[in-house]
Design a protein around this nucleic acid. Structure first.
Lengths: 329, 329
DNA sequence: GGCGGGAAGTTTATCGATAAAGTCACCTCC
DNA sequence: GGAGGTGACTTTATCGATAAACTTCCCGCC
């Protein structure tokens, strides 16, 4: 920067002002500095800037695992939206555990991220030590922290109810809910199950506890096993609502394993609308939350909180759409 | 750090030495400093460290799009391996274009990444301006730069040949290759096609140009369209080799659209072994490159080059396995 | 006894930017 | 005509660490 200043015949500070598009520099000088920057091949040293200014220009995005389609898509959107606001995104993986999430928060501080978007699944509002600091954090997705953070929630209960209602509309009489274990206290799992039960109740259908499958993990493999288990139990069922598309994919596979046809014998619906859902055979009916909207809102909220840490927290629920495809036709 | 030094009754430098596990500090002093750190809640300021030392501890990982299953998985592995070596990973998206890749390289410099792992698809060894600087860069995947960079290549030609040979073994007589356009000069596409043709030739099967489908994009949608096109062309075919699993997924869908059964009417194989491949109906036969190995090797190479920028470049080919599933049964 | 050779610390001089305060010329307006 | 204001810069004092050079002090050994 000294070189540039010398080349342009101004002070370092004026160069800084030009680089950062600040006022107080006349047009001719501005031009001269720009030229000097060009000629010298100068690039700002981000660490020096950060050291002095306290801002890194980086937003952390902590997700359970980046290789789950849902989070990959989310990350892709967040990166794009953040870029438009001049922020860079650093991705952290929490491993879907509270410990990883606490680490991510600590890490965000250590690495001096300006803000953090945390897709928490392990931490929750009650038992766990929440973030100690006062860093800008936006909670994305499932867990609820009672207004202590900006929060973008999924329409878990409502959208699940819509999916169940749809299955009933299609003539299903016995809809299994393949989901996580309720004793995880995972808000997402519980809220979705509530939605499912609510929809059954609204139609006067009695919920059969045998048709609730609580998985140990929300994976394709677990979904497949669930289908096997349901078939083996001998309890007749003609619909399956899976807690996520990933699980639904496993369920579809598991049903095929045992010779049940979808949608003829059993109708299946999922949640998330991962990219693959539309291309499966049969194509999967699913709840499609608006990922782009969520990413945009998350970035908006975190940048606003960075700008004004004192503002009151806000809460939004993502819009969604029930996308009906072959699996419930 | 000054506070900690005062608390422990030592100099700042000694604190620095303790924090960085350097020698020249006696056990008692080390303990005292650790305690002081604990009590004061001290955390290093990463920017200051970077400013002085010139090292950020961050490796950039530039991939076309993070929401493609293949790259999500790769990223997940790279993050994990880098962590073990004390590096943090920043993900960049290049949009699968040369411009994005050049940006990523420039960005890596600006943000002072210690090294960059670049999964290049747009840049290639000939026409494009390659990286100007002398930053540690490891090329991952497709493109070849003639030994100017460390390079971890995919076993494109060989593995594709193995897949085609397998289809022939299963009795296929007319195997379509659904791939990208050869005039992209995308090394991956061309190498895989060479492998395909080579395997045909080795068995004395004549390649039918009508069975080469050059897609405009390697997406599920394009794969689906390709299947429609093949079926509509009226040229009989009983096997499809797709250039990636994502394309294969589309092909499976497209074949279902036109009423062709897999594997009874047509056998299908892919490349990548994305997580979903095993759970599709029918489960997809595919080439499974060893992602974990690639990630490990990439991180190893980049850290070694960071440590010694002058060392000669090396080139590795990822191991692979042909995973045979229902789609070619 | 004196000297080489660590080990254990301390001092000093930056790394490259920016916030905040200071200078200076010129203008405006009562 | 002078107080006050403003625009366009410059100066100064850091931000928080670390590399490199510099002290001590102690030990072993010819």
């Amino acid at each position: 920067m000294d070189d540039v200043a010398r080349l342009a015949g101004v002070s370092k500070m004026t160069v800084s002002n030009v680089v950062n598009n600040r006022g107080g520099v006349s047009e001719p000088v501005r031009r001269r500095v720009r030229e000097a920057i060009e000629r010298s091949g100068y690039r700002v040293n981000v660490s020096a800037r950060t050291l002095r200014s306290g801002r890194t220009g980086v937003i952390g995005l902590a997700v359970p695992e980046i290789d789950r389609p849902y989070f990959g898509r989310l990350a892709s959107h967040v990166i794009e939206r953040a870029r438009r606001r001049g922020f860079h995104v650093a991705i952290e993986q929490t491993g879907a555990a509270a410990a990883g999430e606490i680490d991510a928060i600590a890490h965000a501080r250590t690495l001096q991220f300006d803000g953090l978007i945390l897709s928490a699944v392990g931490l929750d509002g009650r038992d766990r030590t929440p973030p100690e600091g006062d860093h800008p954090i936006v909670m994305l997705g499932e867990q609820d922290f009672g207004g202590r953070f900006d929060h973008i929630a999924m329409p878990n209960e409502e959208a699940t109810a819509a999916a169940t209602a749809h299955l009933l509309d299609r003539g299903c009489r016995a809809v299994a809910h393949v989901t996580g274990r309720l004793d995880w206290n995972l808000n997402m799992v519980n809220a979705r199950h509530r939605g499912h039960l609510g929809a059954l109740a609204a139609r006067g259908v009695e919920a059969d506890p045998a048709l609730h499958v609580g998985l140990d993990a929300l994976t394709m493999e677990a979904g497949r096993a669930a289908a096997h288990r349901l078939a083996a139990a001998g309890r007749p069922f003609d619909g399956v609502l899976a807690v996520t598309d990933t699980v639904a994919l496993g369920v579809l596979r598991g049903l095929a394993d045992v010779g049940l046809r979808v949608p003829d014998d059993v109708r299946v619906a999922g949640f998330d609308d991962i990219a693959e859902a539309a291309y499966l055979v049969p194509a999967l009916t699913t709840v499609a939350p608006d990922h782009a909207w969520m990413a945009e809102k998350a970035v908006e909220l975190v940048t606003e909180r960075i700008a004004d840490p004192g503002r009151p927290t806000s809460r939004y629920v993502a819009p969604y759409e029930l996308v009906i495809r072959e699996s419930t036709r």
